[in-house]
């Protein structure tokens, strides 16, 4: 009797081990694809990028494997420093305007019925699902010197000469806001929606006016959403060279354009890699601040 109970225990133990072995195998099978993919196509390429940024460009763009810091020094060359400054200025304006324009919309969507809210978010995303580029090209038709706005303003007699609306920073910023505002509205909307209405009521009951309530209660509580929106606008803005090309007409360069050129026209991979590293570092710093402030990385993907 005693023996059999011991046997039973042993059997049970064996069973548990077998079960946990199978469990481990299942977990391993589930984890393997993502792990392999991330190592091969995210971590390895990024390590190569870092490595490349310290190499030397040889004649005809062939890379010479002698380490150097020259690529990083080259960034401080006034020509390139100007480009970086310009990128930051354009991205900064775009981000600020996107947040200012998007917040009231997010606020509106958060207040309406949930059916209407989902309809509005779908309507917001629809133009970009199709083809951001083709829709963006419409701005060339709208903004050019004989375009819709200029023709209209001249016909009603407001203007005698066409206004230069295209191929300048104004056009670039308008295009960028168009591309990134929908993505910025979503995290702000979700953080406003999560807001406890009772707190606003309490603030009002305690005598604060709507403006004071907004700045002291609503704004601080929805700041994670705002910060997520800032990141979602700022990051793609700096690297997205198509808008600058299409609506800026080559008048201004962004870091994205500069990197693109290193791999196409100039064939200077190490310098392109160094620029990419700097860009990645700027962004990385922003994201670290974001997570330190209590932001959730998951909010950047939804």
């Amino acid at each position: 009797m005693k023996k059999s109970s011991e046997e039973l225990k042993a059997l049970k133990k064996k069973g548990r081990i077998m079960k946990s072995k199978r469990e481990r195998l299942t977990t391993f099978v589930m984890q393997a694809p993502l792990t392999i993919w991330t190592v091969l196509f995210v971590l390895a390429p990024f390590c190569l990028l870092a490595f490349m940024s310290f190499m030397t460009k040889g004649p005809l763009g062939i890379i010479q494997y002698t380490p150097t810091l020259a690529n990083y020094k080259e960034i401080f060359n006034p020509v390139y420093a100007d480009v970086i400054e310009q990128s930051l200025v354009i991205a900064g304006w775009t981000t600020a305007l996107t947040i200012l324009l998007g917040y009231p919309l997010a606020n509106f969507i958060a207040k309406v019925k949930s059916k209407t809210a989902s309809l509005l978010t779908i309507l917001l995303m629809l133009p970009l699902w199709v083809s951001g580029l083709v829709v963006l090209y419409s701005f060339v038709i709208i903004l050019n010197n004989s375009g819709l706005i200029n023709t209209f303003l001249q016909n009603i007699g407001v203007l005698s000469e066409p206004l230069q609306l295209l191929y300048n920073n104004f056009a670039i910023i308008v295009g960028m806001i168009y591309m990134f505002l929908p993505f910025a509205v979503l995290p702000m909307y979700s953080s406003i929606e999560k807001l406890d209405r009772g707190l606003i009521e309490a603030s009002k009951d305690l005598g604060a006016g709507p403006i004071k309530t907004f700045f002291n209660v609503t704004l601080p509580l929805t700041s994670p959403g705002i910060f997520a929106a800032i990141i979602l606008t700022f990051i793609p803005c700096i690297g997205y060279y198509m808008v600058t090309d299409m609506l800026g007409g080559g008048t201004s360069l962004m870091i994205g354009n500069l990197i693109y050129r290193q791999f196409t026209i100039s064939r200077d991979w190490p310098f392109g890699a160094a620029l990419s590293m700097v860009l990645a570092l700027i962004i990385f710093l922003m994201v670290v601040i974001y997570t330190k402030l209590g932001g959730d990385l998951d909010d950047l993907g939804a």
Partner: peptide
């Protein structure tokens, strides 16, 4: 690292993969 591709600008990922 899974989040990396959405955090860094697309062009950085593009040139890394290209290289």
């Amino acid at each position: 690292s899974v989040y990396f591709p959405i955090i860094i600008p697309e062009i950085v990922l593009a040139v890394s993969l290209f290289m």
